[in-house]
Design a protein around this nucleic acid. Structure first.
Lengths: 157, 157
DNA sequence: TCCAGTGGTTGCATAATAAAACCATGTTGC
DNA sequence: GCAACATGGTTTTATTATGCAACCACTGGA
C-alpha cells in the first residue's frame, strides 16, 4: 500500500481535518460555494478544474457531509451542491488562509480582492483567538494536553 | 503542462496560500515545528514521512520563507529548521483546522489532544472574526470586493 | 581507523492528477 | 416527438507526485 498516507486513524485534529480537506481543490471549491456557486458547470468553468477531478471532489465532500445535493432550485431536473453546516464551518479556515496571504505574501499587489464587512463596507479585522477570560492568545500562549475522556471509553479503537 | 495546476498567478489570496502550504505534509511539519521540533530526524520519526518527501517540503518551506535553517543550537555541526515570523503566522490556520475537526468530526472521541490556554489551563475559545467596530462576523456578514490600488501601479505584471 | 548515527539523495513502483474524448440524460425549438 | 444543443458527468490515457527502500556523505565517538 503506497497510498497517500491517510491521516484517518491519527488522533491529531489537524491531521483529521487535512485528511478531509487537505487537497488542492477542495478548499477552492468550498470557497466558490461560499460565494454562491452551486452547479457542477459553475464550479468547472469558474475554477478551470478538470471535470473528473471536480466530480471526485464533489462526491468526496458529499460523502463527508460538507456538501449536500439538492434536486432543483431553478426548476430544472439537474442537481445542485449546497454547503451543509459542516461545510459552512470551514469559513474560519478560508479566512485564515486569506489573511495569511494578505499579511505575508511576497507579492501582495497581486491579490485582487479584500474581505469586507457587508454592513459597513470596511475591511474585517484579523482572526482572534481568545482565552475563556477574554485574553487574546498567540502561539506562545497555548499548549496541548491529552483530551480528558469525556464519559466512559477512553479510547475508541 | 499537466503539472499540479499551480495557483501561482491567481489573484485569490486563498489560492495563493494553498499554492504554498496546500499539500498533505507541509502543515503537519509546521504543526510539529510549532510544538518545538527542529531537526530533520525529529520530524521524520514523529511524522513517519518519507525522507525524500520531508527533504523536499523542508526545502520548499525554506524557499518560501516559512522556515529558516540555523546552524547549531546544541553544539553539533548539524542544522535545525526554525519557524520564521511568516511561519508562525500560520498559527491561525492550524487553529482553524483543529477547531473544525473538534466541532464537526464524525468520530470526535478519537481526537486525542485539546488546545489550552497555558496561563489558566483552560480550553481556548473559538476563533473569532470581528468587524472594525467589534461586531462578530460570520460567513453571511462578509463579502469580497476588488482590492483598491494602494498607491500607484494597479497591476503588477 | 572503524563503526554507528544523522541527514539527506537516488531509483523504482504506484497512486493521484490532468486533459481530452466520449456518453447519457435533460432541455429547447418546432 | 424529434433533432440539436447544453449539462453533468465517466472513461481513457499521459504525466506528475508520493512512498518506500536502498544508498551515500558527513559527523562524532571509541
Amino acid at each position: 500500500m503506497v497510498k497517500r498516507t491517510s491521516f484517518e486513524g491519527d488522533g491529531c485534529p489537524v491531521a483529521r481535518s487535512l485528511d478531509v480537506i487537505g487537497d488542492w481543490w477542495t478548499l477552492m471549491i468550498i470557497r466558490e460555494a461560499m460565494l454562491g456557486l452551486r452547479r457542477f458547470g459553475e464550479f468547472q468553468s469558474k475554477l478551470g478544474v478538470a471535470k473528473n477531478i471536480l466530480s471526485a471532489r464533489l462526491r468526496s465532500m458529499v460523502d463527508h457531509g460538507i456538501l449536500e445535493t439538492a434536486p432543483a432550485s431553478d426548476g430544472s431536473a439537474y442537481q445542485e451542491y449546497l454547503l451543509t453546516p459542516k461545510g459552512r464551518g470551514l469559513f474560519p479556515i478560508l479566512v485564515a488562509l486569506r489573511q495569511w496571504s494578505e499579511e505575508f505574501d511576497d507579492a501582495p499587489e497581486e491579490i485582487d480582492t479584500i474581505m469586507i464587512d457587508r454592513a459597513k463596507g470596511r475591511p474585517v479585522k484579523k482572526l482572534e483567538l481568545h482565552a475563556e477570560d477574554g485574553r487574546l492568545l498567540s502561539l506562545a500562549d497555548i499548549t496541548l494536553k491529552p483530551r480528558p475522556a469525556p464519559r466512559r471509553s477512553r479510547r475508541a479503537g
